[in-house]
Amino acid sequence: MHIVAIDIAKFHHDAIVVDDDTGAIVVEPFRFGNNDEGFKTLMQNIRPYLKGKHLIGFESTGHYGHNLMMFLLDHKLTVGIVNPLSTKAEREKKIRKTKTDRIDCYVIYKVLSSRDYARMSRKKLKLQEAKTLTRAYNNLMEDIRLYKNRLQKCVDIAFPELNGLVTPYTKRYNAILKEFGSAKVVAKTHLGTIKKVLSIKGRGNHTKVDPHELKTLAQRSIGQNIDANNLEIEYLLGMIEFLEEKKKIYTKKIEEYARQLNSPIFSIPGIGYTTGLSILSEIGDIALFSSATKVVAFAGVDPSVYQSGEYQGNGLAISKRGSRYLRKALYQCILTVCNNSSTFKNYYNLKKSQGKTHLCAQGHCARKLIRVIYKLLTQNIKFDETALV
Rank of each mutant, 00 (worst) to 15 (best):
P84L: 10
V305D: 01
L326H: 07
D104M: 07
R150E: 08
A183M: 11
D156R: 09
N174M: 08
C360F: 00
V82G: 02
T275S: 15
I254R: 10
C360A: 13
L236T: 06
N205E: 12
E245R: 07
F58T: 02
L359R: 12
I271V: 08
V186W: 05
T343R: 11
D227C: 01
I254P: 10
K178G: 04
I334Y: 12
L350E: 14
K195P: 03
S199P: 00
Q332M: 12
T98V: 14
V82H: 02
K253H: 14
K320A: 07
N339A: 15
T216D: 07
A5V: 09
L316E: 04
I95T: 13
K123E: 15
I103K: 14
K178L: 09
H190L: 03
H190A: 10
D156S: 07
Y306S: 09
I176K: 02
T41N: 15
L127P: 00
A130Y: 04
K88P: 04
R220C: 13
Y348N: 08
S304G: 12
L237C: 10
T343N: 12
A15R: 00
G309F: 05
V4C: 14
L243N: 15
N174V: 02
Y106H: 08
G192M: 09
D302Q: 07
F39D: 02
L112H: 09
S267A: 04
G223D: 03
V209A: 08
Y257G: 01
N67Y: 07
V27W: 00
M120Q: 15
H12Y: 14
V186I: 15
P160I: 11
F344L: 07
P211S: 14
T378M: 06
K110D: 03
Y173R: 06
L72M: 06
Q224K: 15
D302E: 11
N225H: 12
K53I: 06
L335H: 12
V26P: 06
T274P: 00
L73G: 09
D20S: 13
G202E: 11
T251C: 01
A299S: 09
I16P: 01
I334L: 10
I249M: 13
A89K: 12
E37F: 03
C360V: 14
